[in-house]
Design a binder for these strands. Structure first.
Lengths: 203, 203, 203, 203
DNA sequence: AATGAATGAGTGTTCATTCAT
DNA sequence: GATGAATGAACACTCATTCAT
């Protein structure tokens, strides 16, 4: 009885968050309705609001969870590893995220595009700290002559941009590729290694 | 004199589209309200609907205009030019677009993220055609040994991703950069030349 | 200059009333819009309101004109004529009205059905007086043994009901008759003589 | 217990339909507002829309219910009965309907007058079939010499016209009759028997 | 005499949230 | 825990009417 959350409660919360992720990622915050989420979750609307006090609460819960997963791969960069391998590992981790959790990626993108009203604290705090750590690692590698001297911040931005693009702009990709590339992320993975470590100039 | 649109009509329409761009790009289609747009435009809501028949009409007008500007720089790639210079020119044009029209970029991104319900025809038609043209140019350059052999489609995607990122994710960039980089797009421009034409491996 | 209405003004007013009759008779007062009427009349909305001060004004003008035409045939009943012929002449006049002016008939019907808010004075005044006159004629004929003794008021009601039905319920008639009767009013004319002067009992 | 509708739902639906009948029959579809209906029903507008999804839904529910009651008496005509009695029974049933449900009658009339946009299928289907059945009965009676040979379709029209007139045009009747006839439908009932079975010619 | 422009008061409908059970 | 019922605040859009020219 000391346990506030029963297992059932936790399960229902998961079901609701799953449904909410789907609906929010397809329609944005304002475009999503509790009716839709409740329908997907298979619950009644009031019952859903028994588990989460408001639409806002569902959304922010979703966002904060998302951020944890978001940040993880950056932690995993090993300063004592090989720069090329470590960066490719990070790129692949991000691509894998785009493949497995495109909805999360889109939800995050929508939130940023809308000005990140519910996320700016997290961006300026934990995210910035983590990026700064990575930047220090990159700079060390550059000083050691193991990595080309480029702007480390923008390097991170370019990784984010290119990898998340496969989730966020998949509709556009599919429209442009038609049937030409049945598995863009795999192709993209090879392409990105070429781009990041060979560049476009022919040898 | 045979012009159906009076000057005042054209002016008001521009004012409305300007206001709509601001509001839509911050909130998406569903998130934006005609009240907001009317307030920004300094018009009454019914008066606004005198110039555009519906919310939808405002939005689609905005989108179709946007697409024209969007496609232009791709046209400008010159098959007989120098690959490095042509690609950098395209990258810079896209960056310039992100600098000057970040709201348009975000509007476009939001539309794609929402599944491009009002844009899929344009994507599968004119955009695809134009991309295919560019791909042919790139492939020719590759065959001539003037450009590294990478997947041309994904090359375009990566340019889009990295350049638009400066507009679409500017909130996140600013949060991460703090005061460190007062002009990220200029820095980004240099970084992207490094990335695309030198790669990350040290020489 | 003493003449307030120029010929042009009178003509435009006619055009507007014509258009209004069409629109009002198809949609009722609330269902009709000034835009529709203006479109049918080929005028701009404000210009229309230059000739009639309001929607209400158009409608009431239409109604009061209508009533004049409406009452006329009742005046024409000749006390010194033959009852059978006079009544049939009235019935035919009403049927002719249904054939030539179905929209007027429907407009009138709609107004009555809506409780005749703009017509009750006319009904209780001029119309009642005229009906009373006809009732006196009918009663005289009955006293003279030239007409069967039936309730004279309800006789008039039954004539109105049966003749106007051909205009007001023509949609229903056409649905029920299908292609069976291409000219219901002619058939109806014969039928009504049978009904009113032979009855349904076989001889 | 398998019933999907709770008692309270059925009750509220009835209350709403009652209120809607009143408002629609006085103003037609376009003339009626949900605010009016909600006020009469004693509900809030959104709560009303909890029971019926739209204004249209309320109206069509009303119409389809109406049609059932509308058609019933025609079914009851007994081919093996006495023509005079059967027809008078039908006339009286229709008059009774006009007495007890004048609003339904007016609602139906308004719908027809507006071109029956929501009813034409029903008119061309079930109603036509039922009329055709009655026509066959009438023709048989005529062939057997038990009914005067008149157009059977128009006979039905004349019954509809004269009986529904007592509901649809009651405002006009009351205006014309003044205090002369406190119970027009009773008087009308006698008159109609005279009209239909004696005719106007004196014997 | 005519019209483009403007608006206040609606009008049907949606939706997050609350209440009662 | 769960649900049917209820509602206030919005929201997109309409429309008769007015204003300015």
């Amino acid at each position: 009885m000391a346990n506030k959350d029963t297992r059932i409660q936790r399960e229902k919360r998961e079901i609701i968050l799953d449904a909410a992720l789907q609906v929010f990622s397809e329609n944005g915050f304002r475009g999503a309705t509790l009716d839709q989420i409740a329908a997907v979750a298979g619950l009644s609307k009031p019952n859903m609001l028994y588990y989460f006090s408001s639409k806002e609460a569902i959304y922010t819960t979703l966002l904060s969870r998302l951020l944890e997963t978001w940040l993880q791969p950056l932690y995993d960069i090993d300063p004592s590893g090989d720069p090329h391998k470590e960066i490719m590992r990070y790129i692949c981790a991000k691509l894998e995220f785009s493949r497995k959790f495109p909805r999360q990626s889109r939800l995050f993108a929508i939130e940023i595009l809308n000005g990140a009203p519910r996320l700016s604290d997290e961006l300026e705090g934990p995210l910035k700290d983590l990026v700064d750590r990575s930047v220090r690692i990159f700079r060390q590698w550059m000083n050691e002559g193991r990595l080309a001297k480029v702007d480390p911040y923008h390097l991170i931005f370019s990784i984010w941009a290119t990898t998340q693009h496969y989730a966020d702009f998949s509709v556009q990709m599919r429209a442009v590729l038609g049937d030409e590339d049945p598995d863009p992320i795999t192709t993209g993975s090879k392409f990105l290694e070429d781009l990041f470590f060979k560049g476009l100039d022919p040898r």
